[in-house]
Design a binder for these strands. Structure first.
Lengths: 337, 337
DNA sequence: ATGAAAGCGCTAACAT
DNA sequence: ATGTTAGCGCTTTCAT
């Protein structure tokens, strides 16, 4: 990377000691130095094009100004907004997120976690969804700062920032009930994800309270393919065909669209479909998707805020921040016929 | 971050010198050490849960094993695949990408570039699209390793990895011509992006060769809103309405959909539309979008490969890698009526 | 207000 | 094959 003007060069040019240069250039210490000396130092630094070496600083201060962000897959459309939300809070404060993808593999997650620890990240944001024992528990024991985002922290005493999934499901059900639907199916995401559990429970509870006939069909992944497969299964089943599907997320809902189309069924005329997340361009699908909007960007920025608070002031108490969601009614739901 | 077992602790436990521990634990030097000593060292390291501090190593070796990736906006659907492609090549080799978003602002780009230089990144991947003078030129003068991805390197002597945009436009035109279209409009992206220029030129050249009547309408951003605005403008114009639109990218094409719908026009019955990029879920739009597929993942992985080659062996010559694209015909194009 | 000096944890050149 | 030594560039006590 080449550029090698160090603090010593600046010191020489400014005719002061390296220590003074450090103090003059550092915001927190610059008032310890004579204002005019500071000016001279800054001039010298500028003249030489001095750039502090943050690796060296990090070694000295044992902080890298870096945050590890562990997600399953950046290509899943809910993550880019979350990551940008994180970045929007971190960047102005001098921190950089380092994003890694686990592809759902625990082994990969462990490897990446270790490599980020080696890189001396100052904290972690976990967006991996599994509810089982993850590295988060171990990280906590090691005294590592972290926050969970878009997943519950069951069993792990880290703060969590999540959308109000139960409320979202509840609103979906009320919307569907108002349209006259009585026979519903919930395509539940993998039960290893905390979000899946919350949504499925909310579905069951909501159906009970609203007097709806609701069945739950599990899937093995939050993917379009799995949505299609599960819906194929529903349509092949001997049970009466549901008039509405509450999908665990938009990808599953998209799979339902595909299955319906393959079976010559129309949405919403034959079957209404509600997604979850309001992923980018959900309104441009065919048909425009009715779905629950989760504020992903805010999920990200809030998680970053809580993490930095935790880092600054290690005495902070774990919080659980639940952000409101909103049902976006579009064209994939209609009155039962 | 707390854990503080250092190489010295391992040395003490293993009864050897720190230097020996370093050698034993480092792949490139571990054959300089007695095999059984090495075993002892590894056992000691494991027992203590030793984790090398890569900040300290970086300071010593002046390399951070980190690559700066500068993109406009992660939320633009073409970038996640590119970033994952980059990561897929870097991660197995011990490098981590650090991704930053400029939001199209040169000032932000400069700031982020500087901060990454301070972080001692070993190289850059630039995915910012502007053709004008950017920081790339300056980076080159500073002897910084870099590669351009998804944009041309006009005027900058860095290697570039791009899709064959001209070919993609050419195939789009041939497809449209075969369907009987003669009056076309190209919605060109901002002329500051090299991709916009390449595509617009290819459009003009193709129309000439195929004997088509092609007009070019500029836009100020690769966005849905701009696509809609530009299409509104086209429809309001006194010139005869085109039968087909070749959009600069899928987002603009989506904007065309919106405009058409607002004007009560149907796609492809009234107007055919071709996008560019085949962004995720383009096949799920309404109507499913005919578009040119760019191999974004490979763009990313190839750019990372070239960058690492360049870092390893600084004598490598700049290359320009053009990856083939493919026209994906779906439902937004049809015969002219 | 500034200089002096030590040291963060590691690697690498030099000795033995 | 391993020990010795120095030092990467910075911050931060401790003096003055």
């Amino acid at each position: 990377m080449s550029r090698r003007v160090t603090i010593a060069d600046v010191a020489t040019l400014a005719g002061v000691h390296p220590g003074t240069v450090s103090r003059a250039l550092n915001l927190k210490t610059q008032d310890q130095v004579n204002i005019e000396t500071a000016g001279r130092v800054r001039a010298a630094a500028k003249q030489l094009g001095y750039t502090p070496n943050s690796i060296a600083r990090g070694l000295r201060t044992s902080s890298s100004m870096t945050i590890g962000v562990i997600i399953p897959d950046l290509t899943n459309p809910i993550f880019p907004p979350i990551v940008r939300g994180i970045d929007s809070y971190l960047a102005p404060r001098g921190y950089s997120p380092v994003v890694v993808n686990t592809d759902g593999s625990d082994a990969t997650e462990r490897l990446l976690f270790d490599s980020l620890v080696q890189r001396q990240v100052d904290g972690f944001i976990f967006a991996t969804g599994h509810a089982g024992p993850s590295i988060a528990g171990e990280a906590y024991k090691r005294g590592i700062h972290a926050v969970m985002v878009n997943r519950d922290s069951r069993g792990v005493p880290y703060p969590a920032v999540v959308g109000d999934d139960a409320q979202g499901i509840r609103e979906s059900l009320e919307h569907l009930a108002a349209l006259g639907h009585r026979r519903l199916v919930h395509l539940a995401g993998p039960s290893t994800f905390s979000t899946s559990q919350v949504r499925a429970e909310a579905f069951a509870a909501g159906c009970r309270e609203l007097g709806l006939d609701g069945a739950i069909v599990p899937t093995s992944a939050y993917s379009v393919d799995e949505g299609q497969r599960a819906m194929d299964e529903v349509l092949a089943s001997s049970a009466g065909r549901p008039t509405a599907i509450v999908a665990g997320n938009d990808l599953l809902a998209l799979g339902v669209y595909h299955s319906l189309r393959r079976h010559g069924l129309r949405c919403p005329d034959d079957v209404s479909v509600v997604g979850f997340n309001d992923m980018p361009f959900a309104g441009d699908f065919q048909p425009a998707m009715t779905t629950v909007r989760t504020p992903h960007f805010q999920l990200g920025s809030e998680s970053a805020r809580i993490l930095l608070d935790q880092i600054d002031d290690s005495g902070s108490t774990p919080v659980r921040l639940v952000l409101p969601v909103e049902l976006i009614v579009r064209a994939s739901t209609g009155p039962v016929r």
